[in-house]
Design a protein around this nucleic acid. Structure first.
Lengths: 167, 167
DNA sequence: ACTAATATTCAATTAATTCTGAATGTTCTA
DNA sequence: TAGAACATTCAGAATTAATTGAATATTAGT
């Protein structure tokens, strides 16, 4: 994989990351590590992507929180090195888990809170609408919880759905 | 539903919107319309949420692009009025369709482009990783396309999954 | 315990996004 | 076709988010 292609990939992934709620630097760091086969240290990340060491440090930390990369140590070397999560399937799994936690769960929580606290008696139409929303999100929530508790199960589910149509 | 509860809901929904990539004003306008049972015009939106008429106009336009609200006309009234998409299930459906279009599709496209253009021969490990990513995203893509082409089918699928565990 | 090498934090800066409101466009009525 | 009522656009202002880099912390070797 030559330099130009890696650069192109890094920028494409970076732009895309912005679209789906991961900041640009973090997505670029992720792309860079995806395109490397040996461990990379903080300086290499900062130099290659032309970002500050502080920013690189924060991006690597955040990618680790998402479970997308791993920190490893080389014997006889004090520096921290980073590699991409080796199981690709697991990588997507982590992204879905993280996004559910950040986006979906607060939405459901806020809706439930509203239904519990608000005095909706006066407008049945609105109450019915919000209750229906809660029901749909609850169903989605329990399906996701069941699937995301088990990588193997998720993978089987995806394979199953590939050839399934409800009638 | 009293004023305080509506206000609380609007702000909660607004904050949440930011989390999941819809801007604050747009999410607040959406929340306001969700909590109304009769059609609302642009002035009412701007006044109630303390935003400019220009901003209100853009938010209403964007919500219409997402398919989350409808513009209607009252006979004998020149103003445009807006109501929430009446079918709640359809509302979520629209959100998923729109987010797939904006987030998922460009990701898959950029990955496919890279695989087609890049000279990956030199590093089989990276090539294998990217190909596996493409395969997973392609599978997810075809499942989504099939489901999202048909509201009724989607609904049935959700009901089916509620009680299904792959073994 | 001191020094050197490396990593992290965070206040200040820079960049990106959102919002405003005046200008402009559209549509209806007379 | 002129004017009134309403809607939309978009350049610049205001706000919010991301980034830098100097200060601070951590770790390992001596």
């Amino acid at each position: 994989m030559d330099i130009n292609n890696i650069n192109q990939f890094i920028e494409a992934w970076g732009a895309m990351g912005v679209l789906w709620g991961i900041n640009r630097s973090m997505a670029r760091v992720h792309a860079f590590l995806l395109a490397q086969s040996s461990p990379i240290d903080l300086d290499q990340v900062a130099n290659r992507l032309h970002i500050s060491r502080g920013n690189a440090s924060m991006c690597l930390k955040e990618l680790r929180n998402w479970g997308l990369i791993r920190r490893i140590n080389q014997p006889g070397d004090r520096r921290d090195f980073y590699v991409i999560e080796p199981d690709v399937w697991n990588m997507f799994f982590r992204i879905v888990v993280e996004r559910k936690k950040r986006e979906f769960d607060p939405a459901l929580h806020s809706l439930r809170y509203l239904l519990a606290e608000a005095d909706l008696e006066k407008d049945k139409k609105i109450q019915a609408r919000l209750e229906q929303m809660e029901e749909i999100l609850s169903t989605a929530n329990s399906i996701m919880n069941r699937l995301l508790s088990d990588t193997v199960k998720s993978r089987k589910m995806l394979d199953f759905l590939k050839n399934f149509t409800p009638k």
